[in-house]
Design a protein around this nucleic acid. Structure first.
Lengths: 225, 225
DNA sequence: CGAATGCTTCGGTTACCATCGAAGTATGAA
DNA sequence: TTCATACTTCGATGGTAACCGAAGCATTCG
């Protein structure tokens, strides 16, 4: 008995309804903030924070600080597989869990993340820059290559002005709706500003959604599709 | 939240150390009594009984009444797979669980179960009778076919006398060391008595072990191996 | 028929932990 | 710098569940 704190620890972590709800919310693969997870679990922030620290100590989730947010994700693929396994088992004996309502598709497509572009468009843009060799990644850090600088300059963005600032030009930011990174930093901000200034897109009121015009979407796809 | 009592219920069942220990003990595939499980978990009988009823209600274990014992087993294969999965996951992050000590091999080989033969020999005997078409199974019930009656009679057992009694002639009994059934009922009792009377085997003192002689083992194997 | 064994149920105690409000810390915005 | 947001930590509370002893069934044995 003494030697086996094993399977019961994992069980206990999953066994609390609030924690189970948070883990289920994270099963989507999205990184969620503590507040969002608190909402998903129907508990207050302090309670959620306590739960999250336990889940982290148990190795089920990891957090990534991003500004004043803390994005939580499942620790790795294995956790997802384990949860999926348990969910399948539970579905066989217990009740089926009704899926939470679908999110606003517009938010998933394109939205602001602080000041830069996020969502499917944001992720696609960074993907393209990387595969074209215009941006190199080093962990969470990113850097613009000479060819990348030329490409950005062609869009009408003053790179030297950005580099003169103390802020990092290139950064990656974990995307909320996709599971992958998009471009942040002063360059990310400048790009979004450019899109809006050029009439490719506009921000929606009281929402983080960014709505591209038909023409804007065409141009964006031509540039980064 | 309201709709999801799902994965957390399973987790809570596994999450209690006492229950986790009992489930781990059952992972060996052996059917264990409530007392044995209480011992394995280091708790008293009442507590174990309470846990077991919860595990049963949750669909993780099933019990099978056998005289004044209650043998508990994992409900089905899926439960074993799930536990194995969680144990593997837990082993990756937490401590490894040391295996409990090996049981007395003599007990596993052959022993009395109330009054009939259990252990590897008991299971093998019933297996042989079934594959030879001498015994048919119907759930937990068993019946002797005509060819089976002849085979038993050839061993010097008076079948008609057994059938005259009110006791069931053929029954199956879940084996403690193997995971499978062996033969019980008045026939099981008569067979063991026969083996001992014929000098094939003798009971050990202060133990449930049944020790076959070399010659006895040879004959037993010839008859049922 | 007792007597003994195996297990369950009941009642009461204890200990833990989920929960929240309030205060504290860190980061970003104005 | 000052304010606002996002989150953590602290302290107190309450509910729940694990736990055991004692008593109650059920089954078997003598």
């Amino acid at each position: 008995m003494k030697e086996g704190p094993d399977i019961s620890q994992i069980g206990a972590l999953i066994g609390d309804p609030a924690r189970a709800n948070m883990l289920t919310a994270l099963m989507g693969g999205q990184a969620l903030t503590a507040s969002e997870l608190a909402g998903a679990a129907g508990i207050t922030l302090p309670t959620a924070s306590s739960h999250l620290s336990k889940l982290e100590a148990g190795g089920l989730v990891t957090q990534r600080k991003q500004g004043r947010h803390r994005y939580f994700t499942l620790a790795d693929n294995e956790v997802g597989l384990l949860l999926e396994n348990i969910m399948g088992f539970a579905a066989g004996r217990g009740h089926l869990r009704t899926r939470p309502g679908p999110k606003d598709p517009a938010l998933r497509k394109a939205r602001v993340c602080y000041n830069h572009l996020a969502g499917d468009f944001g992720v696609r843009m960074l993907d393209r820059l990387i595969t074209d060799g215009d941006v190199t990644l080093d962990g969470e850090e990113a850097a613009l290559t000479p060819s990348g600088e030329a490409r950005i300059a062609a869009l009408g963005i003053d790179i030297t002005a950005l580099k003169a600032q103390r802020r990092p030009v290139c950064r990656t930011c974990l995307d909320w709706s996709e599971r992958r990174s998009h471009l942040a930093g002063s360059l990310g901000e400048a790009l979004l500003a450019r899109f809006i200034a050029d009439g490719w897109a506009r921000r929606e009121k009281d929402s983080r959604a960014v709505r591209f015009t038909a023409e804007g979407e065409r141009r964006f796809t031509a540039a980064f599709g």
